[in-house]
Design a protein around this nucleic acid. Structure first.
Lengths: 275, 275
DNA sequence: TCAAAAGTGTTATCCCTACACCCATGC
DNA sequence: GCATGGGTGTAGGGATAACACTTTTGA
C-alpha cells in the first residue's frame, strides 16, 4: 500500500474501482500496565493500564494516532503471522500473549479502499521492553467512565491527551450484546477507538475467570502488586484477604523479599506452572 | 466465483497467481434444537442439537458437506450483511440471532484461492422453519466425546453419518486456550469441522452466563422443555429444583397449560422481557 | 513514633447441591 | 395402578464479603 503525503498526491491515484478489491489488515491493541511514581516514599507506585499507539504521517490520516497494524500478505501469511510480524516490528518482542479479538469491517472504515481488519489483543510486561520505537508512544488510560451506555475514555502519554466516547447500543437482549458506535473521536484514525474499547472489555472480562493478568506481570512480583494490576483491570477496589485467598493456589511463594519500601517487606511470588 | 464440475475444467482455469488475491467469505453455523420422538406416550421428546449443512456438487468439493456460506461483496456489504443474506437464502428467515464467531484463515483452507472466512453462529427455533431447502439438511449432533484433548463428533441426518475428530492443542496456559487441529475429517469441506466445534463451544459457554438458549425456544414452552434444551447444550443432567430456582426470574408463567402428555400437565412459560 | 502496606483470622451470609417428597395425568 | 414428568421444601456445605487485628519497615 503506497503512502501519500498530500491530498493532491492521493487524489491523483484515486480510483473508486479500488473499492471492488478487498484488502485485509491486522490491528493490534498492545496492552500493558505501567507504574506511575507517587512522590511518597511510603506509597506503592500507582498502576495504570496503557496501550501503544503510533502516529500516522501520511495523508489522509496525518497526525492521527492509531494502533500498530499492517496489511496481510495473502500469498503466504496467516492473520496471526501478520500480527506477530507487526509486534516484532513495533516492540521487538516475540513469544507474547496474542489473541484474536474481532473482525471489524465497516465499509467506510478506511477512506482509501475496502479494508477488513482482524484485530488482536497483545499483552506484555513492560519491563521486558527495551528502547522506544520511533513514532510510537505508550498512552496511559487515565479514565474510563460509563454513563447511560456512553463510554468516555481518556488517554495520555504525558504530552498529549486523547479522549473519545463511544455509544453502546443494545443489539441483543438475551446475551446482553452491544454494538459500539463512535460518538466522538478526534484523535484516533479508522475505528481504532472501538478496537481499544473492545480490547479493554475483553481483558476485563477474562480477568474474572482466567489467569490472563499474569501475562502483564514480571516473573517475580508481590501480592500487593498483583492485586493492584487486578484492580486496575477490573476497575474496582478489592479486599485484601479475599484477594489473597482467591489467588493463593495460582501463585508460588519464593524466598525472595522486596524491601526498602518504607513499610513491611513482602515476599515475592511467581505464577504457579502446574495446576 | 465460478463453479467447476470436473477436475479438468478446474485445472484449465487454474492460475497460481490467484493466490495473491484475497477473497473473504462468511460461513454460518446455523444451530437449532430438534425433537426426536421416543415411541413412549409418557416420555417427553428427546432433544438434540442440530446444525444445517449443505451438500457441495462442484469440483473439488464434490459430495462433501459444508456450512452455508457465501463470498463477501467488497463493494458494498459488511460481513454481517453477507451472513444475513446467506441466512435468508438458506432458511428464508430474517431477524434471528447472529453472532460473529471467529475469523479462520489457514492459507490452504480452500484449494482454489486464498480465502479468509469470518464465521458466524446463528440460532433459530426450528418451529419457525417452513420448508426444506434444496441440498440442505439438518444434522443432529448424536455425540460429542472428549478424551485426552481429542474431541470426536458424530452427526446424522438419518440417512448419512458424518463423524470427525479434532485435536485441542493447548496454546496458552493462562487462559486455557486451545488451537483446534483436524485429526480426521472425511465428510466436511474446508475447515468447517473446526467451525462447528467452535460454534458448539461458544454456545455451551454462553449458556452458562447469558440467556442465549432462549433464542432456540418457541414463544411458549414448559420448564421441562427449557431444562432439556439447557441439558443438551451443556451436555449434562441438571437437578430440577436447582434449575427452576436459577431460571425463575428469567421466565414468566402464563395461564396456558400443556396437556395430553401422559403425565401431569405443565404450565407454559415465556421469556421475561424486562429485567 | 508513625504512615503505609503486608499478612492473618473470624464471623455472618448467601448460594448452590442433594435429596426427599407430593401432585396430576393418560393409558 | 403405575410410569412419567411437574413441581416444592429443606438441610448441609462451601465460598465469599466484611471487618478486625497484628506485623514490619524506613524516614
Amino acid at each position: 500500500m503506497k503512502e501519500y503525503k498530500t491530498e493532491e498526491e492521493f487524489l491523483k491515484d484515486y480510483d473508486s474501482s479500488m473499492y471492488e478489491k478487498l484488502s485485509m489488515t491486522t490491528d493490534i491493541a498492545i496492552i500493558s500496565v505501567s507504574n506511575e511514581d507517587t512522590n511518597n516514599y511510603r506509597k506503592n507506585d500507582k498502576k495504570m493500564m496503557s496501550v501503544l499507539l503510533v502516529k500516522r504521517k501520511d495523508y489522509p490520516y496525518k497526525d492521527k494516532w492509531c494502533l500498530p497494524g499492517g496489511f496481510l500478505n495473502p500469498k503466504d501469511e496467516t492473520l496471526e503471522e501478520c500480527a506477530r510480524r507487526v509486534l516484532k516490528r513495533e516492540t521487538n518482542l516475540s513469544n507474547i500473549y496474542l489473541e484474536q479479538l474481532y473482525t471489524f469491517d465497516r465499509i467506510d472504515r478506511d477512506p482509501r479502499l475496502r479494508v477488513v481488519s482482524t484485530s488482536f489483543v497483545a499483552l506484555i510486561d513492560k519491563e521486558k521492553l527495551e528502547e522506544k520505537v520511533e513514532h510510537a508512544s505508550w498512552f496511559n488510560i487515565i479514565s474510563i467512565k460509563e454513563e447511560k451506555n456512553v463510554v468516555t475514555l481518556t488517554l495520555s502519554n504525558n504530552e498529549e491527551i486523547i479522549d473519545f466516547s463511544i455509544k453502546k447500543e443494545l443489539r441483543e437482549r438475551t446475551t446482553d450484546r452491544y454494538q459500539f458506535v463512535t460518538k466522538e473521536n478526534k484523535y484516533l484514525a479508522f475505528d481504532h477507538d472501538l478496537v481499544i474499547l473492545s480490547a479493554i472489555e475483553r481483558i476485563k472480562n477474562k480477568a474474572n475467570y482466567t489467569d490472563i493478568v499474569f501475562n502483564m506481570m514480571p516473573e517475580y512480583f508481590t501480592l500487593g502488586e498483583l492485586q493492584q494490576v487486578y484492580e486496575v483491570i477490573l476497575n474496582k477496589k478489592l479486599l485484601d484477604p479475599a484477594f489473597r485467598r482467591i489467588i493463593a493456589n495460582k501463585v508460588e511463594k519464593t524466598n525472595k523479599m522486596k524491601t526498602g519500601e518504607g513499610h513491611r517487606p513482602s515476599y515475592l511470588f511467581k505464577y504457579k506452572k502446574n495446576n
